[in-house]
């Protein structure tokens, strides 16, 4: 389409004229947008605004403050700053997102994409299907599989020749991270192998003629070219991982102790087990802040590419 997007660009004797091929705003458009608009307003925008209010109250699930709540200012956040469980929860969230999400999934996914590029087609298709199957399974199924795997007497403990060890008790965070990496790698594999196909072969061949080794070409040519794809992939993994609840809740319920209570899990425990909806919401707001901070890092990294695209 070579259409001029700004209607005012067309003039006749200096007078702007309406273009026949550009639609003018009609009020009926609002009608078209309203079903989705009402749904999103009622169950997305309104709850978000409401969350900003609940986080500053002493709202309870049950009891006297369930009906007659009062505005308590920053007291939830004051409590949060002095809550050691909250801070360990933040730390575990970062380990979970960065370790099992960003690092493990990106590295494994990229490794699979690179190997797939050079391996036999039938093998690539088979391994690709297996990895994708792990990704397509419902989260609860993945949680159950790894719950069994990590137990005392489970396959994983037998593999490391210590069948008596309950890995879910000794290294719980590691096991939920492995489970999450197992489940999520397919996404990176798919995005990054699509990205690899867009790397022009000539550039790589030229580097090869200059005598660059495979690793040099990978590090100096392929990865820099794929930088924005890798960044977008990391951003999407972060958004997907940071609010993860099902996997950890079904595997460990945040335990033992609070050793796997990442922020969404800690929010659920506070809100629906300790009945403290106000504090739970404050934790959810903290989760948004952590997510926003991580996203800002990516967007800053992507800025040169975004500028180029404009």
């Amino acid at each position: 389409m070579t259409a001029v997007h700004d209607a005012s660009e067309l003039q006749f004797d200096g007078i702007p004229v309406d273009r026949a091929d550009i639609k003018k705003f009609k009020w009926s458009s609002i009608l078209w947008l309203s079903p989705a608009g009402i749904l999103v307003m009622a169950l997305f925008v309104l709850p978000t605004i409401y969350a900003l209010y609940i986080g500053f109250t002493n709202m309870q699930l049950l009891g006297p403050f369930a009906q007659h709540l009062s505005f308590t200012g920053l007291s939830n956040f004051d409590r949060m700053i002095h809550d050691p469980v909250f801070w360990s929860s933040v730390k575990m969230t970062l380990v979970f997102v960065i370790g099992s999400g960003i690092i493990a999934q990106t590295v494994l996914g990229f490794a699979l994409a690179l190997l797939g590029q050079r391996a036999k087609i039938s093998l690539r298709a088979t391994v690709g299907s297996i990895v994708i199957l792990a990704w397509v399974l419902p989260e609860i199924t993945v949680a159950f599989i790894w719950y069994a795997f990590g137990q005392a007497g489970g396959t994983l403990s037998e593999l490391i020749a210590r069948p008596g060890d309950d890995l879910l008790a000794t290294v719980p965070l590691l096991i939920v991270c492995v489970a999450n990496a197992w489940r999520g790698t397919a996404f990176s594999m798919l995005i990054l192998s699509a990205g690899l196909r867009n790397v022009p072969a000539e550039v790589d061949e030229a580097a090869q003629l200059e005598g660059a080794s495979y690793w040099q070409r990978l590090w100096r040519v392929t990865i820099p070219i794929m930088r924005s794809t890798i960044m977008v992939n990391m951003l999407l993994i972060t958004i997907g991982t940071i609010s993860d609840f099902t996997l950890i809740w079904a595997m460990t319920q945040g335990g033992p102790g609070n050793e796997t209570a990442i922020l969404p899990v800690y929010m659920y425990i506070q809100a629906f087990q300790f009945n403290d909806l106000g504090y739970g919401t404050a934790i959810a707001l903290a989760l948004i802040v952590v997510g926003a901070l991580l996203s800002i890092i990516y967007v800053r990294q992507l800025r040169p590419e975004l500028k180029k695209a404009q």
Partner: peptide, 26 residues
């Protein structure tokens, strides 16, 4: 022709990335 279409699309994209966890209690 929808007014503020570009901003509207950005808001929609932002909402797509918002964790459901935040919305649950409200």
């Amino acid at each position: 022709r929808v007014p503020f279409k570009a901003s509207l699309l950005l808001v929609i994209l932002f909402l797509a990335g918002l964790p459901v966890t935040l919305l649950l209690i409200p």
